[in-house]
């Protein structure tokens, strides 16, 4: 039969072998953690490098797809408000025209008669009247009146957006830190 000393010595060896295994595993875990701690910048960039661009028509869909995105940007170019957000390797883009309205009118006694209202597209009517883009972002309105020679006046309504307001609105809509929203453009 096996005596007590033999059993104890065998158990001792087993324990020591297990302890060495644990030490090896600890070393491997430390090396892995070290590698991962050095990786984030490169890894993030790699993981978030867009492979495709998606033009999203509806703001609701854009907001759902890009909620919690790593980085986003906004800009106004050629009277177009453009938002880009990078999520899941896809650069999502939403675009919407900023309205631009001209009203031609003439004065008749104590009233004015509107001859013509000009807008660049019918989809811009709600935005122009509400002072808010279809996505929901508030836009500021400035008006200027130009006197024409034939007694007709031209009232031009110029819509614009404030960068900081847009940034905070986007941060709220996309559930992002405003610091990660760039006033400019991110490109694929």
């Amino acid at each position: 039969m096996m005596n007590f000393d033999e059993k104890m010595d065998a158990i001792d060896l087993i324990i020591n072998v297990l302890r060495e295994h644990e030490k090896s595993l600890d070393e491997l875990v430390s090396r892995l953690e070290e590698l991962l701690s050095k990786a984030p910048a490169g890894r993030g960039a790699e993981a978030e490098r867009p492979t495709i661009r998606a033009l999203v028509r509806e703001w609701k869909e854009f907001r759902e797809r890009c909620s919690g995105a790593g980085i986003a940007s906004f800009e106004v170019e050629d009277k177009k408000f453009r938002v880009s957000a990078l999520k899941g390797g896809v650069l999502h883009i939403y675009e919407e025209m900023i309205p631009d309205m001209e009203i031609r009118f003439r004065e008749r006694e104590d009233r004015i008669v509107i001859d013509e209202v000009e807008l660049r597209g019918r989809e811009m009517i709600p935005a122009a009247l509400r002072g808010r883009l279809n996505c929901g972002l508030e836009i500021s309105v400035k008006g200027e009146e130009i006197k024409m020679p034939d007694g007709v006046s031209l009232y031009r309504m110029v819509y614009d957006l404030e960068a900081e307001k847009a940034r905070n609105w986007l941060a709220n809509q996309l559930k992002m830190d405003p610091k990660n929203i760039i006033h400019g453009r991110i490109q694929a």
Partner: peptide, 13 residues
């Protein structure tokens, strides 16, 4: 002696 014990134990096992 301890080494001998370990060998004996595992041989019997």
């Amino acid at each position: 002696r301890k080494g001998e014990n370990v060998i004996n134990y595992f041989s019997r096992a």
